[in-house]
Computed example of a mutant assay.
Amino acid sequence: MAPSEWLVSRIPESILPRIIAYAGFVRFALVGLFTFILTTVLFFGMKTTVLDEKPITAFSIATLIATVVSYVLNREWSFAERGGRSKRHEASLFFLVSAIALGITQIPLALSRYVFDLQAPNLSLVGEHVADFISGSVLGTLLAMAFRWWAFRKWVFPTELADAEPEQSEVDR
């Protein structure tokens, strides 16, 4: 039994039609969950070791690495049936949208740290980590995810191009 068949067999039949109707978003969300975990592990790994005095830098690096992973997974799985642009054009748009999303992701963390001053010595080290996690990893990621879902569907992987453009040769892609 294929992994996808096994997974589908475990989903209650009452909600399966809804999941199928929103399969693209479910795939996008699963990629997002995976890259969220990757970002969080990298962020806290760097923040508590080599970049302990530079949380914004640590978060930016972690997000950049996760973005590259996200491009591959989204292109090959989440939006595989969409698109139609050349790979270079699509990748350029993906990384432009992701760069904007990176800025969006940083806003809550920057506000937490530098406006609300939720850091040591005002908070315990545990309190600082919790504030960083909630502001950067949770709020920032949710804001950026909403923006990316909209922008990927609108500009990076549009359905109109998949239906309208003639098939390109592999050299053009």
Rank of each mutant, 00 (worst) to 15 (best):
A2F: 09
P3I: 00
V8Q: 14
S14Y: 07
I15W: 09
L16F: 05
P17I: 07
Y22N: 15
A23E: 11
G24T: 07
G24D: 12
F25I: 04
F25D: 00
V31F: 01
G32R: 03
G32A: 06
L33E: 10
F34Y: 07
F36A: 11
T39K: 08
T40R: 10
L42E: 07
F43G: 05
F43P: 03
K47N: 15
K47Y: 10
T48E: 13
T49D: 11
T49M: 07
L51S: 08
E53P: 06
K54F: 08
S60D: 01
I61M: 11
T63Y: 11
L64V: 14
L64Y: 10
V69P: 00
V72D: 02
E76R: 15
W77C: 07
S78G: 10
A80I: 07
R82M: 09
E90D: 09
E90S: 08
F94C: 04
F95M: 06
L96R: 03
A101T: 02
A101F: 02
I104A: 05
T105E: 14
T105H: 06
I107E: 06
P108C: 04
S112M: 08
R113Q: 15
V115I: 13
L118D: 05
A120V: 14
L123M: 12
S124D: 06
L125W: 09
